Simulated assay, not measured.
Amino acid sequence: MSITGQKTTDTARHGTGTGTGTGTGTGTGTEKDLPPRERLVQAASRLFYYEGVRAIGVERLIAEAGVTKATFYRHFAAKDDLVVAYLQTKDAYYRQVAEPLAAAHPPAEAIDLIFEAIAEHARERGFRGSPFMNAAAEYPDADHPVRALVTSHRDWIRGLFREQLTRLGHADPASAAGALLMLYDGAMAAGYLDDQTAAHKTLLDAVRLIRSEG
């Protein structure tokens, strides 16, 4: 299961959808049947992830989504509001994958399975790293709503790990959770830049070392 919920087709990887960039796009697959707001979020998910946030303007977004400019501004006051909505969908999907694993398994197994899901995601065709870290790199202002959402997402991950480590009886769950969060960040980068098979083994070995230290 993809941890981001983003289908990585050839079309999605290149961020072209079926829009033409002229305002006549109609989205991909069944997207044309979605409400306009959802079509905009779907288009943003493709374009922002594969081409970057700053590189994509409102005209390109409305072309990909097959909506009018008036419809865009009816749902989003500015492009940054759509960036937040895009990241909210990613955050929600990560939670839908990770939280059931944490609830259904003993803590050590839950931690391993969460990282297995991350490693699986990093092996997907078209993987380009964490959508949250990618977005944060384009928003240097730490007080910006996009950065606030990135921080909230990372705080949730840290808290999820801390909860599992506490259940496991780790001697210092807060510090170990911080270490696992750093591994998570590193796994997202290594999955894009390094040999994925080697990165997978290194990641899981490091996870087991950290969770067993306590």
Rank of each mutant, 00 (worst) to 15 (best):
L165I: 10
R154M: 13
S130D: 12
V146G: 01
E138Y: 06
R158T: 13
A142D: 12
H153T: 13
D143E: 14
T151I: 03
V150S: 02
D143K: 03
E163C: 04
I157W: 12
D141R: 01
G129S: 11
M133Q: 14
L149K: 04
A135Y: 02
R147N: 12
D155T: 14
I157T: 13
F127T: 08
D143A: 12
Y139Q: 00
Y139G: 00
R154F: 15
G159T: 13
A142N: 04
F161R: 07
F132I: 03
R158P: 02
E163A: 13
Y139K: 01
F132K: 03
Q164M: 13
R158L: 07
R162Y: 05
N134T: 13
I157S: 07
F161M: 15
A137V: 01
P145Q: 07
P140M: 01
A142L: 10
L149G: 04
G159N: 13
A135S: 06
R162C: 14
V150F: 05
R128F: 07
D143C: 00
L165S: 09
S130A: 12
T151L: 03
D143L: 04
T166P: 05
Y139W: 09
A137T: 00
H153F: 15
Y139S: 00
Y139E: 00
A135T: 03
I157P: 03
A136N: 02
Y139T: 00
T166G: 09
E138G: 07
S130P: 09
L149F: 03
V146L: 02
R128D: 12
N134V: 05
T166R: 15
R154W: 05
M133Y: 07
R154G: 05
R147L: 02
E138V: 07
L165W: 06
R162L: 10
S152F: 04
R154T: 06
S130W: 10
P140A: 01
R147A: 06
A137Y: 01
Y139C: 01
I157C: 09
A135Q: 02
W156Y: 15
I157V: 15
A148W: 00
F132C: 05
F127Q: 09
R128W: 05
S130E: 10
P131L: 11
S152V: 04
E138M: 11
R162S: 13
V150I: 06
P140H: 01
F161D: 06
L160D: 08
T166I: 03
R158H: 14
L160G: 09
F132T: 03
L165Y: 08
D143P: 01
Q164W: 08
D143W: 00
F132M: 14
R158D: 10
A136H: 03
P145W: 08
A148N: 04
P131T: 11
P131C: 09
S152N: 04
Q164H: 10
H153G: 05
P145E: 06
A136P: 04
L160W: 07
S152P: 00
W156V: 06
D143M: 05
G129Y: 12
F132H: 06
G159L: 11
R158W: 06
G159E: 11
H144G: 06
A137Q: 01
L165D: 07
Q164N: 12
R128V: 11
G159Q: 11
A142P: 03
